[in-house]
Measured scan of single mutants.
Amino acid sequence: TSIVNVSSSLNVRSSASTSSKVIGSLSGNTKVTIVGEEGAFYKIEYKGSHGYVAKEYI
């Protein structure tokens, strides 16, 4: 489990790309479970499925 480190919110994306669809967002200090990594993104558990967040904010 890791913590989201942002002051406002962090986009959760459908794939490991800044141009991919935003499927949701997480607020600062939210706990997330990392299940993998791809480039500059972590794959996380998100709403019963998976999403991707930028590593620099975790």
Rank of each mutant, 00 (worst) to 15 (best):
14 S>G: 08
21 K>L: 11
28 G>R: 14
17 S>G: 06
57 Y>E: 15
38 E>A: 07
24 G>N: 02
57 Y>M: 11
35 V>T: 07
17 S>I: 05
24 G>Y: 05
36 G>H: 04
36 G>I: 02
48 G>R: 04
9 S>T: 11
5 N>Q: 11
36 G>K: 04
42 Y>W: 10
22 V>K: 05
22 V>W: 05
26 L>I: 14
47 K>C: 14
19 S>W: 06
58 I>E: 03
55 K>V: 05
5 N>G: 09
25 S>A: 10
14 S>W: 07
35 V>F: 05
37 E>S: 08
35 V>A: 04
42 Y>N: 03
24 G>W: 05
34 I>M: 03
39 G>D: 07
7 S>E: 10
18 T>C: 15
10 L>C: 15
34 I>L: 04
43 K>C: 08
1 T>D: 11
46 Y>S: 00
57 Y>H: 13
1 T>H: 13
38 E>V: 09
16 A>V: 04
43 K>Y: 06
3 I>P: 07
4 V>E: 07
27 S>R: 13
18 T>A: 14
35 V>N: 02
54 A>M: 12
18 T>Y: 14
31 K>A: 11
14 S>N: 08
35 V>H: 03
48 G>M: 05
10 L>I: 15
21 K>R: 13
4 V>I: 11
20 S>Y: 05
32 V>T: 03
34 I>R: 01
23 I>V: 07
1 T>F: 05
32 V>G: 01
13 R>Y: 15
54 A>V: 08
26 L>T: 03
10 L>E: 04
39 G>N: 07
31 K>R: 13
13 R>T: 09
58 I>D: 03
38 E>I: 07
30 T>C: 10
23 I>H: 02
56 E>F: 08
7 S>N: 12
19 S>R: 11
24 G>F: 09
55 K>P: 00
6 V>W: 05
4 V>Q: 08
10 L>F: 09
53 V>Q: 00
41 F>V: 01
45 E>Y: 07
41 F>Q: 01
35 V>K: 04
43 K>H: 04
48 G>H: 05
51 G>F: 04
56 E>D: 08
32 V>A: 04
54 A>T: 05
33 T>M: 09
16 A>P: 14
57 Y>V: 08
24 G>M: 06
49 S>Q: 11
30 T>S: 11
6 V>N: 08
46 Y>F: 13
45 E>W: 09
34 I>S: 01
51 G>W: 04
56 E>M: 10
20 S>F: 05
22 V>E: 03
36 G>R: 03
22 V>M: 06
14 S>F: 10
45 E>K: 08
36 G>Y: 03
9 S>F: 12
19 S>I: 08
23 I>N: 01
23 I>R: 02
25 S>C: 15
11 N>F: 10
32 V>L: 08
30 T>R: 06
57 Y>P: 05
55 K>R: 06
11 N>V: 15
42 Y>V: 06
8 S>R: 13
51 G>S: 02
44 I>G: 01
9 S>H: 13
36 G>V: 03
18 T>L: 14
47 K>Q: 13
38 E>N: 06
17 S>L: 06
58 I>S: 04
12 V>H: 01
1 T>K: 10
20 S>G: 14
26 L>D: 00
22 V>R: 05
45 E>N: 07
22 V>A: 06
13 R>F: 15
2 S>K: 13
14 S>H: 10
38 E>P: 00
44 I>K: 00
14 S>E: 15
13 R>E: 02
42 Y>D: 03
21 K>P: 15
4 V>R: 08
31 K>Q: 13
32 V>H: 02
41 F>Y: 09
12 V>T: 01
34 I>Y: 01
52 Y>D: 00
14 S>C: 12
51 G>Y: 04
21 K>M: 12
16 A>I: 05
46 Y>L: 03
39 G>K: 05
47 K>L: 12
19 S>M: 10
17 S>T: 09
43 K>F: 05
27 S>C: 14
10 L>K: 04
42 Y>C: 06
34 I>E: 00
23 I>S: 02
47 K>G: 12
15 S>W: 06
15 S>F: 07
21 K>S: 12
53 V>G: 00
39 G>M: 04
10 L>T: 13
23 I>T: 02
7 S>M: 12
24 G>V: 04
8 S>D: 12
34 I>A: 01
52 Y>C: 03
46 Y>W: 12
15 S>K: 10
23 I>L: 09
40 A>H: 10
27 S>I: 12
29 N>Q: 10
32 V>C: 05
33 T>C: 12
32 V>M: 07
46 Y>N: 01
46 Y>T: 01
35 V>E: 03
41 F>C: 04
41 F>L: 01
42 Y>R: 02
31 K>F: 12
42 Y>A: 04
12 V>S: 01
17 S>E: 07
3 I>T: 11
4 V>P: 07
15 S>M: 10
21 K>D: 11
3 I>M: 11
1 T>M: 08
29 N>D: 09
24 G>H: 03
40 A>M: 10
40 A>N: 13
50 H>M: 08
10 L>N: 05
54 A>N: 09
35 V>L: 14
18 T>H: 15
54 A>C: 14
24 G>Q: 02
39 G>H: 05
56 E>N: 07
7 S>T: 13
1 T>N: 11
25 S>P: 04
37 E>H: 06
40 A>K: 10
8 S>F: 11
11 N>P: 15
45 E>L: 13
17 S>K: 07
35 V>M: 08
30 T>I: 09
30 T>P: 04
30 T>A: 11
13 R>G: 04
35 V>I: 14
16 A>N: 04
29 N>C: 15
12 V>N: 00
47 K>I: 06
45 E>D: 08
55 K>Q: 05
51 G>D: 00
50 H>C: 08
19 S>V: 08
47 K>P: 02
44 I>S: 03
27 S>Y: 09
35 V>Q: 04
26 L>S: 01
26 L>Q: 02
2 S>R: 15
19 S>T: 13
41 F>T: 01
48 G>L: 04
48 G>E: 07
2 S>W: 10
32 V>D: 00
39 G>R: 04
50 H>F: 15
50 H>A: 06
4 V>S: 08
35 V>P: 00
55 K>C: 04
33 T>G: 07
35 V>R: 04
21 K>E: 13
14 S>D: 11
32 V>F: 07
36 G>M: 04
5 N>V: 15
4 V>F: 05
52 Y>E: 00
21 K>V: 10
34 I>K: 01
2 S>N: 13
14 S>L: 14
32 V>P: 04
44 I>Y: 00
15 S>V: 06
9 S>P: 13
13 R>I: 05
20 S>E: 02
26 L>C: 05
36 G>S: 07
12 V>D: 02
54 A>W: 10
57 Y>T: 08
51 G>K: 01
10 L>W: 06
19 S>Y: 07
57 Y>F: 14
9 S>A: 12
41 F>G: 00
25 S>N: 11
33 T>Y: 09
29 N>L: 12
52 Y>N: 00
9 S>R: 14
58 I>H: 03
11 N>H: 14
45 E>I: 13
40 A>R: 08
6 V>L: 11
52 Y>L: 01
18 T>S: 13
33 T>D: 05
15 S>D: 09
32 V>Y: 06
46 Y>V: 02
29 N>G: 15
41 F>N: 01
41 F>K: 00
42 Y>L: 06
11 N>W: 10
25 S>Y: 14
44 I>T: 00
49 S>W: 07
9 S>V: 12
13 R>W: 15
4 V>T: 10
2 S>G: 15
27 S>T: 11
14 S>T: 08
29 N>I: 08
26 L>F: 05
37 E>A: 08
50 H>N: 05
46 Y>A: 01
12 V>F: 01
57 Y>I: 07
6 V>C: 15
18 T>V: 12
38 E>S: 07
20 S>C: 05
35 V>D: 02
22 V>G: 02
58 I>Y: 05
42 Y>G: 02
30 T>W: 07
8 S>W: 09
22 V>N: 03
17 S>R: 07
19 S>N: 13
57 Y>W: 09
14 S>R: 09
44 I>P: 02
17 S>W: 03
50 H>W: 15
44 I>W: 03
37 E>R: 05
47 K>N: 14
10 L>G: 06
48 G>C: 07
1 T>C: 15
21 K>A: 13
31 K>P: 12
58 I>K: 03
13 R>C: 07
58 I>T: 05
6 V>T: 12
